[in-house]
C-alpha cells in the first residue's frame, strides 16, 4: 500500500478577485521506504503541496490519502487524531526557527511523543535512545537550541520528526541552510533511514541537491507534476522541456551545463 497518494490536487489562495491557483491537478504517489525528490522553483507550488498533505491548507479539489486514510475532507479534529498517531512528520528548512528557543532539546524531542500519548518516562527513554541514530550526544539534551550549532540543530529537528516512527516524512530543503560538512552528514543520516522503511519526500528548489539521495524525482511546474521517474532517468534523460531546462541550468563541476542556445530554446518553448 502506498504511504501517500495524491491525485488531481487543486489548491487556491485568496478570495474572489484575488483568487489564484497554487496547485493545478498535482498528483504524486509515494511508496514505503523510498525517497522522492520533489523539485520546484519559486511559485511552483511545492510548499503548498507540503502544506496540503500536512493538512495546513485545504485543497479545493483532489484526493489525498495518507497511510490508507483519505484525508481530503478531514476536519480539524480528525487531522489532530491523525497527526497524534505520528505517522506523518515534517522537517523545516531552518532548524533554528523550527525549535522553540525556550524549550530544551529534550523537551522539543519529547513533544511529539507526549502528544502521541506516550508516558513521560518512556518518552524520555526513547528520546535518549534516539540520539545516537542522528549522531548526537546525550549531553545535548538539557541544552537550548541557541547553544547548538546549525548542523546539530538540524539533526535534532530530524530526530524530532523521526522519533514517532512515522511512515512518511516531508523535508523542506533540509540541508540548504547547512555548510558542506553538515550537509553531507544529514544526507547520510537520511540515506540510512531508507532501510527502515520510512518514506521521505525531499522538497527542494534545486535538482542538484536531491539528485544524490532521491530514488525518484518529481518535477513540479506551475502547480502540477510534469515529470516523475527514477532519479537517474529524469536527470540523465529528461523529457519535459522544463525538466530539461532545470537540468541544463544546474551548475555542475564538470561544466555539464547545457549550452545557452539550448536553454533559450527551451524557455521559448515553455513560454509559448
Amino acid at each position: 500500500m502506498s504511504v501517500l497518494e495524491v491525485t488531481g490536487l487543486d489548491v487556491h489562495y485568496g478570495l474572489r478577485r484575488h483568487r489564484r491557483q497554487a496547485l493545478a491537478g498535482a498528483s504524486l504517489t509515494v511508496e514505503p521506504g523510498e525517497i522522492v525528490g520533489l523539485i520546484g522553483e519559486t511559485g511552483s507550488g511545492k510548499s503548498t503541496f507540503a502544506r496540503a498533505v500536512l493538512g495546513l491548507v485545504r485543497p479545493s479539489a483532489g484526493r489525498i490519502v495518507v497511510d490508507g486514510e483519505d484525508v481530503s475532507g478531514h476536519r480539524d479534529r480528525q487531522w489532530r487524531a491523525l497527526r497524534r498517531r505520528g505517522v506523518l512528520q515534517y522537517v523545516f528548512q531552518d532548524p533554528l526557527r523550527s525549535l522553540d528557543p525556550d524549550l530544551t532539546i529534550a523537551d522539543s524531542l519529547l513533544e511529539p511523543l507526549l502528544l502521541k500519548g506516550i508516558p513521560r518516562v518512556e518518552a524520555v527513554e526513547r528520546a535518549r535512545g534516539y540520539l545516537p541514530r542522528v549522531r548526537l550526544d546525550e549531553e545535548l539534551l538539557p541544552r537550548l537550541p541557541g547553544e547548538l550549532s546549525g548542523g546539530q540543530r538540524q539533526r535534532v529537528a530530524v530526530a524530532r520528526a523521526l522519533i514517532t516512527e512515522p511512515k512518511l516524512v516531508i523535508l523542506d530543503e533540509p540541508v540548504s541552510a547547512l555548510d558542506a560538512a553538515n550537509r553531507v552528514q544529514v544526507l547520510e543520516i537520511l540515506k540510512d533511514l531508507r532501510d527502515t522503511g520510512i518514506a521521505l519526500v525531499f522538497i527542494s528548489h534545486d535538482l542538484g541537491s536531491v539528485a544524490g539521495i532521491a530514488d525518484r524525482v518529481a518535477v513540479l511546474y506551475q502547480g502540477s507534476v510534469v515529470e516523475v521517474g527514477p532519479a537517474r532517468d529524469v536527470i540523465a534523460a529528461p523529457e519535459h522541456p522544463y525538466t530539461k531546462l532545470l537540468v541544463g541550468s544546474a551548475p555542475t563541476l564538470r561544466m555539464a551545463a547545457a549550452g545557452r542556445a539550448e536553454r533559450e530554446a527551451l524557455r521559448a518553448l515553455l513560454n509559448a
Partner: peptide
C-alpha cells in the same frame, strides 16, 4: 507565526497545548 508552533500543530498539538507549552512562556 513561528515555525515551532507549526511544528507542534503538525505533531497534533491542540490550541491549549500550544498556548501552555509555547505561547505562555514568551
Amino acid at each position: 507565526r513561528s515555525q515551532y508552533v507549526e511544528a507542534a500543530l503538525i505533531s497534533g498539538a491542540s490550541l491549549g497545548w500550544v498556548i501552555r507549552r509555547h505561547v505562555w512562556v514568551k
